[in-house]
């Protein structure tokens, strides 16, 4: 279970996330929707422990283990994963070698033996084929010269290899054409199961045509202002967000 309890986050002294609480159980898919600037990406990155964000109060618990004070890498090896909206390019670092490093970091933390390059390559090939990802991804630099769509698919590949307990997908649909969206969504659907939980962060309802959420939350100005089922997404598509905006507290 992933529990976000009463979380408040500031960035450069400006409060961005305000008293936010959210619980995701295994097997559940949650969608967080909201307009630009609502704090969606800040929420995603703060769950991962982005340095430079200030946690003013609250906590993030993964299976009752407090993540709030942990380094990002410790959160990752505990089973959290964020698919970034804009994955960075890291020239010269081999994509496959990076993935092996990441998986072995996780295996180390679990007291498992590291995978050697050959065994890892078998695993990677299998994951890539399942996700219909071109094998030439292995030999490229990490996100180096990748198109927007390729980067998103690479994020999903990382998720497949690392097999997290809870994953937050930050605008995984943005910048994708219809075909790429279908490929990425089917990848996500393959990976979603009863043992893990997903949070989809998105602007648009269209992703939710491909991945069915159990719960939809509306994030406005750093707060969850409404929660509903998947029909809420359709309502938002039709009405926009303005009707949910409350007059600011005085």
């Amino acid at each position: 279970m992933l529990e976000i309890k009463d979380l408040s986050i500031s960035v450069e002294n400006t409060p961005i996330i305000k008293n936010l609480s959210l619980t995701v159980r295994r097997g559940e898919i949650h969608a967080i929707m909201g307009p630009n600037g609502a704090g969606k990406s800040t929420l995603a990155r703060s769950i991962m422990g982005y340095p430079g964000y200030e946690v003013n109060q609250g906590s993030v618990l993964l299976d009752d283990k407090d993540m709030t004070e942990l380094e990002p890498e410790e959160r990752a090896t505990s089973g959290l994963f964020v698919s970034f909206q804009y994955p960075v390019e890291i020239p010269g670092v081999n994509n496959a070698e990076f993935l092996r490093m990441a998986l072995n970091a996780k295996r180390n933390s679990q007291g498992l033996e590291e995978l050697d390059p050959l065994d890892f390559d078998d695993l990677l090939t299998q994951k890539m084929d399942a996700l219909h990802i071109d094998r030439d991804f292995k030999n490229r630099g990490l996100n180096e010269g990748f198109s927007g769509g390729e980067k998103k698919r690479n994020e999903i590949l990382q998720m497949a290899v690392l097999d997290p307990k809870f994953a937050i997908l930050d605008e995984t649909d943005s910048g994708l054409d219809i075909d790429a969206l279908r490929i990425v969504s089917s990848g996500v659907n393959q990976l979603a199961n009863e043992q893990n939980g997903l949070i989809l962060i998105t602007h648009y309802q269209r992703l939710l045509n491909h991945i069915q959420p159990d719960h939809v939350h509306v994030l406005l100005d750093g707060e969850i202002v409404k929660t509903g089922g998947k029909e809420l997404a359709l309502e938002l598509e039709e009405k926009g967000y303005d009707w949910l905006k409350q007059p600011s507290h005085s």
């Binding site: 990155r45 991962m48 422990g49 982005y50 340095p51 430079g52 380094e71 990002p72 890498e73 959160r75 990752a76 090896t77 994963f81 964020v82 970034f84 994955p87 960075v88 890291i90 990076f98 490093m101 990441a102 970091a105 996780k106 933390s109 990382q158 690392l162």
Partner: peptide, 15 residues
């Protein structure tokens, strides 16, 4: 960049 390092960290790799 800090973002590059965070990217590694978010995948479980130390700084």
């Amino acid at each position: 960049s800090e973002d590059q390092l965070f990217y590694f960290q978010s995948r479980g790799v130390s700084i």
